[in-house]
């Protein structure tokens, strides 16, 4: 099959503004990923095409991009999902929105990680470790409460699909809330109150308008909107 790719290109050293590059690939398989095709363009046709990628199977979170208008990981999006017609697949690839494009599909991730760091994304407790030198105990039920949000790979697909984030980049965004949720609802952690204070602030959870783009975009199938709702509930009820 043939793939016709339309890729948003921008090189700050040579381009005044972004442009669309068009590339045709033959002998494409239905099971090829978009990353496979981008690699073929880069390796066979134009080595200047620039993107981030590493593990190539949806775990490292490097290659979130906008594929046919929706955020996804390039390595986890297969040709067969993109509407093959008459043995041709048309694929449009752009950088994720809301973060500054540095070059082609690669964006500045620093604001994203700043938001991540702002929610105390680490385990906090003052309780001494068990005297027997062993693990803290936690019931399977308590562990299950925050299981979903431990899956987050910080790919930014959710945050950069969120209209509230597009409107104002100071909003911490769904990914940071997911990371906070992972600790707020961990029975061993003792800093839920401080995190909830951060998230109750102007650029916290109330910027969320329950649009569900984040949930649709998450390549790990985390119920992001639900996690945000649980944080909202915790803030209003004062209970975790």
């Amino acid at each position: 099959m043939q793939a016709k790719l339309r890729i948003r290109r921008f090189n700050p050293e040579t381009d005044k503004k972004p442009w669309w590059g068009e590339y045709t690939l033959d002998e494409v398989l239905r099971t090829d990923t978009v990353l496979d095709l981008l690699h073929r363009v880069k390796w066979e046709q134009d080595g200047t095409l620039t993107l981030r990628r590493s593990c190539a199977h949806g775990v490292c979170g490097s290659d979130a991009m906008r594929i046919n208008g929706a955020n996804a990981l390039a390595c986890k999006t297969l040709v067969k999902e993109l509407g093959v017609k008459n043995d041709v697949v048309k694929i449009q690839v752009e950088p994720i929105l809301g973060l500054t494009v540095e070059k082609d599909l690669l964006v500045d991730m620093e604001p994203f990680f700043d938001h991540y760091r702002s929610v105390m994304p680490y385990f906090v407790t003052d309780t001494p470790v068990p005297a027997d030198g062993r693990e803290r105990l936690q019931s399977p039920e308590d562990r299950a409460r925050f299981d979903d949000t431990t899956k987050c790979i910080l790919c930014a697909a959710c945050t950069t699909s969120c209209p509230s984030f597009w409107a104002d980049g100071r909003y911490v965004g769904p990914a940071a809330i997911v990371q906070a949720h992972r600790f707020i609802f961990d029975s061993r952690d003792e800093a839920a109150g401080e995190r909830l204070d951060v998230l109750a602030d102007t650029f916290g959870v109330w910027r969320c308008r329950t649009i569900f783009n984040c949930t649709n975009a998450c390549p790990r199938e985390i119920k992001v909107t639900e996690a945000i709702a649980e944080v909202k509930m915790a803030i209003t009820s004062g209970r975790v």
Partner: peptide, 22 residues
């Protein structure tokens, strides 16, 4: 053994047994 326990103390969410252990 001590390192896995240390990871748990750092907050690593291991799966748990009914008795709460890793």
């Amino acid at each position: 053994i001590e390192t896995v326990i240390e990871l748990e103390h750092m907050g690593l969410p291991f799966d748990r047994l009914p008795n709460g252990r890793i």
